[in-house]
Simulated assay, not measured.
Amino acid sequence: MNIPVLEVTNLQKHYAVYRGLLRREVARVKAVDGISFCVARGETLCVVGESGCGKSTVGKLILRLTPPTAGSIRLNGLDVTSLPEDELRPHRQRVQMVFQDPYASLNPKLRAGKIVGEPIENFQGIAAEEREARVTAILRKVGLRADAMKRFPFEFSGGQRQRLAIARALAVNPKLIVADEPVSALDVSVQAQVLNLLMDLQEELNVAYLFISHDLGVVEHIGHRIAVMYLGRIVEIAPKEPVFEEPLHPYTQALMNAAPVANPRQKRERLLIEGDVPSPMNPPSGCHFHTRCPFASPRCRSEEPKLREVVPGHFVACHLREDGYRGALPRSSLSSNRNPKES
């Protein structure tokens, strides 16, 4: 049996809100509200959604940088949800992270060779000469020359710093890398180089990625499967092609339609959603999206939709799809995005 690198079941993270002189708990922020997914070896699962939907919190929970409120996290079949730090340490080298800002995530006082070599020293304790050879090989693998070992982070460009951060993550041969907006701080041309590097490394090393992003163009380029989050919940999860070609959840369709296209004259129907994202401190009952959904019914306001497999491999949490309805959404709630001169 092929055990997934990562298995997440009913994961929750609630933050208590305290007020008053006595610091009494008055509410809870439901940053992550019961999500489940898995990531296979050599696979890239992209987590997308609006700001504040809980994407980055999911990454922190997977890394155990913050403890979950409920649910379970299994790495290579081992439940690490509640392991104490001394028992968790041997498993930390199997999951590493690439942060959004490469400059802030690198120690400015250390040279590149030390930055990449430190994880090897901490986890494997090999001889200095062998460690230096390993560091040189890793730097070359990510497109940096051997003389980069002697340079400080400020001496690199933004793209080179992110390559250095990727090298540090690869230093201990992880099975899973959590990448939180790893190219959003880079120029577009450099983004493509870093994305292609990540894809080449995945093919060579069979490493799995949990790729967190809000950029649908980036997600379409690198992802194998996509999980769409809204207000702490996964509302749709499926392979990349069906999500981009035929999204089944109204929120996913709105996200796809909101992405800009290269041709300004291209006619495209848009699903318009109104209003702001509700507060995670006081989320709506039933389906969290019902306050903005043009297809909401009384059932949506009272009953939470479960994530169900509507078609093979395509899971959606929407009452509209529970009875097997797979067609396009009603046209009455779609508006045509046309150039005024074409009308």
Rank of each mutant, 00 (worst) to 15 (best):
Y18M: 12
V190G: 06
L61W: 09
S184W: 02
P174C: 10
L65E: 13
V8Q: 00
N173Y: 14
P247V: 03
N257H: 14
L22N: 14
P278Y: 09
R321D: 05
I73M: 02
P283R: 05
P330Y: 03
V219A: 07
N196K: 05
E309T: 06
I222C: 04
L22F: 15
H290L: 10
S333P: 01
P340F: 05
L78C: 08
V235I: 08
A317D: 01
K341F: 06
S184E: 03
R233V: 10
Y103N: 07
V316T: 15
S335M: 08
Q162L: 12
V26A: 11
H290P: 11
P67G: 09
A296R: 07
G217P: 12
E85D: 12
A133I: 00
A167Y: 06
V261Y: 02
I237C: 06
A192V: 14
E303D: 13
F289H: 02
Q253W: 06
S189K: 08
N337G: 13
R326G: 04
P278E: 06
Q12P: 01
I237M: 15
L63N: 09
T44D: 00
G77L: 07
A146K: 15
I73W: 00
M281P: 00
I212N: 01
R140Y: 02
A171W: 06
R41Y: 01
S302L: 13
A27Q: 07
G223T: 00
I212A: 01
P312I: 11
T81R: 13
R92Y: 10
S36M: 00
D276K: 14
K267T: 06
E274F: 14
I115T: 12
K141M: 14
L65N: 14
S343C: 01
M256N: 03
R225F: 01
N282M: 10
D79V: 01
V80Q: 08
